[in-house]
């Protein structure tokens, strides 16, 4: 559903890769915040932020999870910045079939950063004492679209993995059982 243009506060995280010390506190607190009940468990593999790191090559890139990608892209290029070589994937926010990042470790379902809805600042920012992550709000004019519900995101992911037909069959079978 397409909506009209509207002024909106856009929440952003500014990332300074030069300041990152590679400690992964952002991953720690992110996974705790999104646990249910809140803070009850810790597992960076469930975190919606990842530090792409390769210490001996001085690569430290914190990346927040973005959209789910159905298929992997052609992005296998290399970037050299200040003499350091980065994989193109190091900057990509997608939960995609070509890598392990941003997927629930058990189900493989995609993860996405929600900027810690309800908090003053995302927790990863609050816990980054070296200021590699800072929070910034910007006013932007955006086209309103309807938010996709969590269930729908999950279903879409499953559908693209197993095919919609199979999902429908499974749902039908499950509801019969009940």
């Amino acid at each position: 559903m397409k909506g009209e243009k509207k002024k909106k506060i856009v929440k952003t995280i500014k990332i300074d890769v030069d300041k990152c010390n590679g400690c992964r506190a952002c991953e720690v607190v992110c996974s705790a915040f999104h646990a249910s009940p809140k803070y009850s468990s810790n597992n960076p593999a469930r975190s919606r932020i990842r530090v792409i790191r390769d210490p001996l090559r001085d690569v430290y890139v914190p990346v927040c999870a973005g959209e789910y990608a159905v298929a992997e892209c052609a992005g296998r290029d290399k970037y050299t910045i200040d003499g350091k070589e980065y994989d193109e994937c190091a900057f990509c926010r997608a939960s995609c079939p070509s890598r392990q990042e941003f997927k629930e470790p058990d189900s493989g379902l995609p993860l996405k950063c929600d900027m810690c809805e309800g908090e003053d600042e995302p927790l990863c920012v609050q816990w980054c004492l070296v200021d590699a992550l800072t929070y910034e709000e910007r006013e932007e004019e955006v086209e309103e679209t309807e938010e996709q519900e969590e269930l729908e995101i999950g279903l879409e992911a499953l559908a693209s993995k197993y095919g919609l037909q199979k999902i429908m069959e499974t749902v039908a079978r499950l509801s019969k059982k009940e």
Partner: peptide
């Protein structure tokens, strides 16, 4: 390499 949870007893208090 591990991808399992470590749980805490009283989450809010611990955090």
């Amino acid at each position: 390499r591990g991808t399992k949870d470590v749980n805490v007893a009283r989450p809010e208090e611990f955090l």
